[in-house]
Design a protein around this nucleic acid. Structure first.
Lengths: 196, 196
DNA sequence: AGTCATGGAAACAGATCGGTTTCTAGCATC
DNA sequence: GATGCTAGAAACCGATCTGTTTCCATGACT
């Protein structure tokens, strides 16, 4: 129920969802109504709508991260953990409620890279690249920095495709990532150095 | 000067630029002012703002296409023509005025895939994929359909990266495309079937 | 019971939204 | 020179925008 959480939590929750679903141009009135919080309270908790955009995006960061790449405390190989990200994305798209990567969408809508929301988006996008990078280092890939960026690009490219096409991805993200991983000598369950 | 073109051309021009630079939420007043056209005239030429979004996006389609992949009447190889697209994108980003692929941005901002602007975006995005596909067929690539989609994804991934990072791409798009082309046996100046 | 802080409801402000309408300046045609 | 069409300027409409303010119900503490 809505009243169990604090007004701040309710606002961040509603803002995170509505900014994503309807875009950052949705009105503050609609946000407050959805959160069951008065505008007065909102403007006591957040300096401005822009700040709410940034904070709500940041507050949902951990959720998206867990969604895409859950804790590393499993026995899968780096390659498997990387490909799982693309499979999760595929599932999200297939579920029908996917409107693109929230960070990219927010940055695209805001236009201004110095907007606090854009800064948050950049930060969390970097975290996905960092995840890839860690796994690639573990796997002993040749050029983990470049490859981590390339995998992030494939992720965002697949995301853009799902938005433009409004159709399931059909595994194209994981398939593309596989080609890059193959080319970099990252194979299932073994280090690239062992394969050479 | 602004008055040399017809009101319709001036409107499409101004709309194409301002929708891209400021987002589709820019007001009709600002558009008309920039175009030197009255709102009355605008609503005689276009049924609604939504229609203007779609038509202005469509009117700039040829421009973007020429920008990214000029006429095929040259003696470069398919691989070179494909990689040129990514190099052009790189130059656009480096020029500092790039705010992401206008089709993807518009689709992201509109959210609704049935919006006339989203339909136009889907159409022109497909045209880039078709261009890749034609070149790949010419080059005798193994699976041109899949590869054309993957190249489009890399294009959009690079575009998303440029928006989120607000920095030059440094050739990462062409580099990634090269890996895929290599894996598919598309090499410079020769057919893949000859290479096998 | 009385006091006080919290926070929702709602009015308000000034600006802007998409869209319509009125008015008039300019210009070609007869 | 009179007529009629085009199209820009600008007022107007109701709705919505971000942000502020007032008012009042609630509930905790003394």
């Amino acid at each position: 129920m809505t009243t169990s959480a604090t007004p701040r939590e309710r606002l961040l929750d509603a803002a995170g969802e509505l900014f994503y679903r309807d875009g950052v141009n949705i009105g503050v009135d609609a946000l407050c109504k959805a959160a069951g919080v008065s505008k007065k309270s909102m403007y006591q908790l957040f300096r401005s709508k822009d700040e709410l955009i940034a904070e709500s995006l940041a507050s949902r960061g951990p959720m998206y991260q867990v969604l895409l790449h859950p804790g590393a405390d499993d026995d899968r190989s780096p390659r498997e953990r990387i490909l799982t990200v693309f499979e999760r994305q595929d599932e999200l798209v297939a579920s029908g409620n996917y409107l693109g990567c929230p960070y990219v969408s927010t940055a695209v809508e805001l236009k201004n890279p110095e907007h606090p929301g854009s800064v948050v988006a950049r930060h969390f996008k970097q975290q996905l690249t960092d995840f890839f990078h860690r796994e690639l280092v573990t796997a002993g890939a040749d050029d983990p920095s470049t490859l981590a960026i390339q995998l992030t690009m494939i992720f965002d490219g697949a995301s853009a495709r799902s938005v433009v096409r409004a159709q399931p991805l059909g595994g194209i993200g994981a398939a593309t990532a596989s080609v890059l991983l193959d080319a970099a000598g990252v194979h299932t369950g073994e280090l690239a150095t062992q394969a050479r």
